[in-house]
Simulated assay, not measured.
Amino acid sequence: MRYLHLTIRGRVQGVGYRAWCAREAERLGLTGWVRNRASGAVEAVFAGPDEVVTALAQACRAGPPGARVDDILAHEASEAALAASGGAGPFVVLPTL
């Protein structure tokens, strides 16, 4: 099980990035969460098999149509990173922080 925390910067709010991210994570069977940040970034935590988490992290570099990703900060996380969503349940979209 791999836990990966991403902060995605660019034109990633107002273009359906969170919804796209949640759909992709659910399609791939990952758990975790995604939310907008007041700074204009999108933050996400993905949990699941290493190769699946890696694939979604790569897809996040493009995102949905209309998005422009300028930078992604990624770091390995632990199961504790799921706490914001209430634990290891389905992938969720959280309120803006």
Score class of each variant (00 low, 15 high):
Ala84Asn: 04
Asn36Ser: 05
Val92Pro: 00
Arg68Gln: 09
Leu4Ile: 06
Gly86Ala: 14
Pro90Ser: 13
Ala19Leu: 10
Gly87Ala: 08
Glu43Tyr: 15
Gly10Val: 08
Phe91Asn: 13
Trp33Tyr: 05
Leu6Cys: 07
Thr54Met: 14
Gly29Thr: 03
Glu51Val: 11
Thr96Lys: 15
Val69Asn: 12
His75Pro: 00
Val15Ala: 09
Arg27Glu: 01
Glu26Val: 12
Gly89Glu: 07
Phe91Tyr: 15
Trp33Arg: 05
Tyr3Cys: 11
Ala88Arg: 10
Gly86Ser: 12
Gly29Ser: 06
Ala38Asp: 03
Glu76Gly: 09
Asp71Lys: 14
Ala62His: 10
Trp33Leu: 03
Glu79Gly: 15
Arg68Ile: 06
Asp70Pro: 03
Ala22Asp: 08
Ala47Lys: 05
His75Asn: 06
His5Ser: 15
Leu97Asn: 04
Gly16Val: 15
Ala67Lys: 12
Leu30Met: 02
Ala77Tyr: 02
Ala19Met: 03
Ala81Val: 01
Phe91Pro: 00
Leu97Gly: 14
Thr31Glu: 00
Ala44Asn: 03
Ile72Thr: 03
Thr96Cys: 10
Leu30Ile: 02
Asp50Ser: 10
Pro64Glu: 11
Glu51Asn: 11
Arg9Trp: 15
Val52Met: 07
Glu79Phe: 11
Arg18Tyr: 04
Val12Trp: 15
Ser39His: 07
Gly86His: 13
Thr31His: 09
Val92Thr: 13
Pro49Asp: 15
Glu24Arg: 09
Thr7Cys: 08
Val15Lys: 08
Val53Cys: 05
